[in-house]
Amino acid sequence: MEMGLIGGSLFQIGQVVLSRKGKDAGKWYVVVKIQPEDNRIFVSDGDKFPVSKPKAKNPLHLQGTRWVIEEVAQRIARGEELDKGRLQYLLSHVREK
Rank of each mutant, 00 (worst) to 15 (best):
M1G: 13
M1H: 11
E2Q: 09
E2H: 09
E2W: 06
E2V: 09
M3E: 10
G4Y: 01
G4A: 02
G7R: 11
G8K: 00
F11H: 03
F11C: 06
I13N: 02
G14N: 10
Q15S: 02
Q15W: 07
V16G: 01
V17T: 11
L18V: 07
L18N: 06
L18Y: 03
L18A: 03
S19I: 11
R20V: 04
K21N: 14
G22D: 01
K23G: 12
D24C: 11
A25E: 09
G26F: 04
Y29H: 06
Y29N: 04
V30S: 10
V32F: 07
V32E: 04
K33Q: 14
K33T: 07
Q35C: 05
Q35G: 03
D38P: 08
R40S: 11
F42A: 04
V43S: 01
V43Y: 02
D45H: 05
G46F: 03
G46C: 02
K48A: 10
K48T: 07
F49K: 07
F49W: 08
F49R: 06
P50C: 01
P50L: 02
K53W: 06
P54K: 12
P54A: 14
K57A: 11
K57H: 14
N58Y: 12
H61L: 08
W67Y: 14
W67T: 12
I69A: 01
E70G: 13
E70W: 14
E71K: 02
E71D: 08
V72T: 01
V72I: 06
A73M: 02
A73V: 01
G79F: 03
G79D: 01
E80T: 10
E81Y: 11
L82D: 00
D83E: 05
G85F: 03
R86N: 12
R86Y: 11
L87Q: 00
L87C: 00
L90C: 08
L91K: 00
S92K: 13
H93L: 15
V94L: 11
E96Y: 15
E96R: 15
